[in-house]
């Protein structure tokens, strides 16, 4: 099964960094992932078969916009990350839920809209809230 061998080969390169990947093109960010061809289950990392239905999967691009599912600010030492740093789960529109970093110390409000704006040099997704600053 040559196709299977190719799948394994591509996986070994894709698993080196386990974080979701985003692509910046012309100032616009898209989240690069995979989607099940049978049940449309969205995924941020490559798998041999869909974990929900065992269907085949194909590359997919997801919207960088979504709704904040939960948020916090970590204020402890974590290797490679300077505290304090805020994080959130972002439920992408018609896509997977991803863990993102957010600017500043104030966690984004749960239920509010946010958008992935960039990727750090180290490879973390960064999102910003879409709410107007309250006056």
């Amino acid at each position: 099964m040559p196709q299977r061998e190719n799948e394994v080969e591509s996986m070994s390169s894709a698993t080196a960094d386990p974080r979701p990947r985003a692509v910046v093109s012309g100032g616009a960010v898209t989240v690069a992932g995979w989607r099940c061809r049978d049940c449309a289950h969205p995924m941020t990392h490559e798998v041999l078969r869909c974990p929900v239905c065992r269907g085949g999967t194909g590359a997919a691009a997801f919207s960088p916009q979504g709704e904040v599912f939960a948020s916090t600010c970590l204020r402890i030492r974590v290797p490679g990350h300077e505290p304090p740093f805020a994080m959130a789960y972002l439920l992408l529109d018609d896509g997977p839920r991803v863990l993102v970093h957010t600017e500043g110390e104030q966690p984004l409000r749960v239920g509010s809209r946010a958008v992935i704006t960039s990727i750090t040099a180290d490879g973390d997704l960064v999102a910003a809230g879409c709410e107007q600053e309250e006056s």
Binding site: T44, T72, L74, V78, P79, M87, L99, H101, V110
Partner: peptide
């Protein structure tokens, strides 16, 4: 504290265990 597992997608992003539970608290509060 326990350092996050770098082969894990969320550990690599810096989500230490207190953060996991803080996100639980955040969702619970919502």
């Amino acid at each position: 504290p326990i350092t996050p597992e770098v082969t894990d997608s969320e550990g690599r992003a810096g989500l230490a265990l207190p953060g996991v539970y803080a996100l639980v608290a955040s969702r619970y509060a919502y």
